[in-house]
Amino acid sequence: MKKKAIVCRCEDISLEDVEKAIDEGYTDIEELRKKLRIGMGPCQGRVCIQLVMKILEKKTGKEVGKINLPSSRPPIIPVCLGSIASDKNEK
């Protein structure tokens, strides 16, 4: 397997994948997220989003600050369903 520069570890998305998607016209961070599942894995974008922003800036010339971050959705870390439901339905 040829080594790659990995942007998103969770979903295994490489730099080439991101650049290709940007070339195809996905130039909004949310669009990229939905197209590639970047930031949708267990780390929820902690590792990759700042890299995607830099790649977007480099390729589109858009200032990072003008690119909105994808919305942050709870929970902050993955939590098992059993714990969340723990108030009910347990004997």
Binding site: M40, P42, Q44, S71, R73, P74, P75, P78, V79, C80, L81, G82, I84, A85
Partner: peptide, 9 residues
């Protein structure tokens, strides 16, 4: 029960 909730929107 042991499956993790990842996102909620």
């Amino acid at each position: 029960k042991h499956i993790n909730l990842l996102r909620h929107w």
